[in-house]
Write a protein that binds this DNA or RNA. Structure first.
Lengths: 195, 195
DNA sequence: AAAACTGTACCGACCAGTCGGTACAGTATC
DNA sequence: GATACTGTACCGACTGGTCGGTACAGTTTT
């Protein structure tokens, strides 16, 4: 049988990547090629045509997830905002905003930890993280405030990993306050810290 | 052959649990029973004698890691401290203190995410998290401050998951400040937040 | 008809779990 | 104090099933 009517090869590729994500999310790395293919409406042979091996599929999936996360941060960049800390603000919005997209993002980030046992993927993630971290450090904020803000964002977004998440208004308040700290770092730095 | 001279069955059990942790940390869930057994100085048969199946081994490992994390938090409880927020402070110390033990704890927590594809483990982790969360909420701090502090701690401790960790003095400073916030929640709450 | 795909049948490696056996420390019986 | 028996701890060969990868024939599109 040949190509299914009404779907371009690009679409098939995407469907395979999505199916792989879905499968690994629920069944871990032991997810079968057959399972993934079937879930994408393709046979195993079809999958292999697009991705020569399972490792390649997984590597591509990791690349895809990383790129998607990056895009989500960049989408939150305010073009009108040219003050120091603009990337940090986008980062906070990306991690704390409860959009439908965000839920997928969180799940996806969780997914990546499963993939890290493959050396090539670990390297990729490491490089990507280093890059983003460097950019955040070069965002013009005092390091201590930047660290506080991003660490908190990381913590909130990693919470659903271990259980349920509180998407309530408390998170919105926290988001507003974190962003305000990036606008007025002095608020934090000039608190009457003992010692 | 019988028991190897100089090692009790309890020790063997421990060695197997440790080996399982080590193996899963590096090779993921695909770690072989044979590999784990060999690493603990036992044969596969010996492993199966102690743990009837791979799932049982993994479940027991999860239980062990969870208990160890809890113990690490409880060890940080200051007996002289009876003020509100004492558990939160122990939590912060456990996650931010750069002890040798702490490094293992972080790696172990990362490990657990790998194990969550097994339903029984996921349930266990969920119950444990819920419990700890409830206790933190009942720790006597205003919810917004408690959320900020624990989220930040979570973020810092989950950072090494995605790359390198900064165990430098900045973290120590952050630790001191977070703890101070638990002692004087007003510092945070009464900042001049807009809106 | 060439290029771009898809589905099926199959092979071989790998691995969880089984099972028959070994070693040996106790305990009981005579 | 010797013999017989029991339970615990462990070993390693084997099996049955699973899954990644290959080979190739068939089917569309251009």
């Amino acid at each position: 049988m040949g190509r299914t009517a009404g779907r371009s090869p690009q679409d098939t590729r995407r469907a395979l990547l999505d199916a792989a994500g879905e499968a690994i999310r629920t069944r871990g790395v032991n997810a079968t090629l057959d399972e993934i293919a079937r879930h994408a409406g393709v046979s195993k042979g079809g999958l292999i045509y697009h991705f020569a091996s399972k490792d390649e599929l997984i590597l591509e999936l990791a690349r895809d997830l990383l790129a998607s996360f990056r895009a989500q941060v960049e989408n939150r960049l305010d073009p009108a905002d040219t003050e120091p800390g603009r990337l940090t603000r986008a980062y906070v919005r990306a991690l704390l905003a409860p959009t439908e997209d965000e839920v997928v993002a969180r799940k996806s980030m969780a997914l990546i930890t499963q993939l890290m046992t493959i050396p090539a993927v670990a390297e990729l993630v490491d490089a990507d993280t280093r890059q983003l971290n460097a950019e955040l450090h070069a965002d013009g904020l005092p390091p201590d405030v930047m660290t506080l803000v991003t660490a908190t964002a990381d913590g909130v977004s990693s919470a659903p990993l271990w259980g349920e998440s509180s998407t309530g208004p408390e998170i919105r308040q926290l988001e507003r306050r974190l962003i305000q700290l990036t606008r007025q770092p002095g608020l934090w730095q000039e608190l009457p810290w003992e010692e």
